[in-house]
Write a protein that binds this DNA or RNA. Structure first.
Lengths: 339, 339
DNA sequence: CTTGGCACTCCTCTACGAGGAGTGCCAGTC
DNA sequence: GACTGGCACTCCTCGTAGAGGAGTGCCAAG
């Protein structure tokens, strides 16, 4: 049903349409791509492709444009990797290596992605639950007030204020500090509950009640519902493709302001080896049905820290964006795992 | 030259144009506003206003629209305060009081401003230099590595990693902790240099070199060039006024992605009692020449923590936005000063 | 299966004229 | 001198109409 030439025609339609933003006709197609057949033949193939729902045309006498389904096929079967140039790779590396701390890494990554792809860039901070503890500091702010400062191996620093049910002495606090530090240092946050399980029994009876209350707060805020942070950039690029968003730019911008939506977007990107692509209607977020999202995880191969990606009109350079996203993710992952 | 009626005509033009986004003609003006004169008289006034540069018209047979200069006069002399309703005030208060920490306060404030004004909202985090120290914790991460954690009275938490030139003992560190804590607790960050001045002399000779190096890092990062953080929201509102940005939405979005630009925008807002309004060309940022910015400081009356404001098309509801911005600033200021 | 030919569709662009909103000016009135 | 009604004029907007053209679908022949 879909022989090689039809696939080739689809690929030609997608690439032409992506670069020109105009419906592409059979004549232009036959000329510009060396298909070796006449426009009439191309027209027959086009009719077949349209019957199968891969392309459509705005009106009877216009050229063809790909449907979401067409893009999907293009991405799955036709799009060949477009390796980045050496210069690009070097630029990515030097740009990222200039970062001074995690915030800076994320900021730079967002900027980099936006510039490379000319799309909206989304970068999730290393997920707490998938990080491990480099240091947990307990600061005795006031007799009944503690500040917990957690530093992860990825450089993320989180703090929580704790109101205590009872007054603690300085001695109690340093005992706490020692007990927590001993068990959590180097541990992954997902393993924290197990690592802390024996804590109440091992501690002096006097501070047990306080201890358990602290533990529950720690576990709840850091493990059960850790705060996910996400950085966004390059929204100005949406206007670059204003033609692709007839009247739909507003819902896109509105959606991007919702933290929940962003999380959903890169929620599946938990694997640094697989690039996910969501195309148009495949997207579960109402306002983003006219956009495509390319995401991937970053971090060590056996389990990413978090995800990053780009968002743009369905009419985007999938091959290029996939390469860029993958390349940036690799460098960021290496950087955070190495440093 | 500008008698009362001409001013009244200008006010009518501005308010009508703001609400309708259409050039306003003499007839409609005379009818809808009870000016007590005929359209012909209004036309004479309009001609005078135009001669003085307060209004203009797109083409010969169109109505008048205000110029930047016209808006300026409107804001300076004509715009009367538009008090918020009790319900609105209550909504602001309850919404803000639900915040759990500073990040949350800022996020909520951005959202609130954007929703109240239907414009882009900009909120600066309490400036470090204008805050005072609630607590400074020194964490001994490794023999030659310290983590400084600063908590300000406004709830802001900053941390800095420090590589030491020499190895420190746990004892040295607690001496440091004590020395810094003693001098800085409750001090404003701008006063930190003075508060720390006697520190090297008072300290044991053994740790003086390390001490001075720490001091210089502390002072540099926290006082001399403190990191300013800014939150942005409601960019989707720009599309609401798409008609006001013929082809200029891109530069606006691009400008708003520059941290420097945002700082510049609210840089002058360092007084909680004075609302600043920048109109169109008055704006020093190239890409924002088609927008107006309403800013004000928030915090205690004798010196704001930082600034906040909104940005939108020059054709905005100045009276309403000024009221909203002022009201929100007051509640946020009270909240942070009180809590 | 491929191809050239051809009729057909329907978008786009331009021109044109009617309609109308709004202005500027003038002469008259209070 | 300020205000007003009248009036000619400008120029935008909108609808209509037609030419031009890109592209298709189909058919019959290779």
């Amino acid at each position: 049903m879909l022989d090689d030439r039809k696939l080739e025609v689809l690929r030609a339609i997608v690439t032409d349409f992506v670069s020109s933003n105009e419906p592409v006709g059979s004549k232009a197609l036959a000329e510009r791509h060396s298909l070796g057949v006449s426009p009439a033949t191309v027209r027959n193939d086009m009719a077949a492709l349209e019957d199968d729902g891969y392309i459509t045309h705005p009106h009877t006498s216009a050229g063809r444009i790909p449907t979401d389904k067409g893009y999907r096929l293009f991405v799955d079967r036709l799009s060949q990797v477009k390796p980045l140039s050496v210069a690009e790779r070097r630029a990515i590396q030097t740009f990222l290596e200039g970062a001074v701390d995690l915030d800076d890494v994320v900021r730079r990554t967002v900027r980099l992605l936006a510039q490379l792809t000319h799309q909206v860039a989304v970068v999730q901070y290393p997920s707490l639950s998938r990080s491990s503890v480099r240091h947990l500091e307990i600061v005795h702010l006031a007799p009944n007030r503690l500040l917990l400062v957690l530093i992860t191996d990825t450089g993320r620093v989180e703090q929580r204020l704790l109101e205590l049910p009872a007054v603690l002495s300085e001695d109690d606090v340093s005992q706490l500090r020692h007990a927590f530090g001993l068990r959590l240092h180097g541990a992954r946050l997902v393993d924290a509950p197990a690592a802390l399980a024996d804590l109440p029994d091992a501690a002096p009876v006097a501070i047990r009640p306080v201890l358990t209350s602290i533990m529950s707060v720690v576990l709840e805020t850091l493990v059960e519902k850790p705060e996910e942070r996400i950085a966004l950039g390059g929204t100005a690029n949406l206007t670059r493709h204003a033609l692709d968003f007839p009247k739909t730019l507003r819902p896109v911008l509105e959606s991007l302001e919702e933290q929940v939506v962003l999380l959903k977007l890169i929620g599946e990107a938990n694997d640094p080896t697989t690039v996910h692509v969501k195309i148009g209607e495949e997207n579960s977020v109402e306002g983003l049905r006219s956009t495509s999202v390319v995401t991937v995880g970053y971090g060590p191969e056996d389990g990413a820290y978090a995800g990053l990606g780009v968002l743009g009109p369905t009419r985007m350079d999938y091959a290029g964006n996939i390469s860029s996203v993958r390349a940036v993710a690799r460098y960021v992952g290496d950087l955070l795992a190495g440093g």
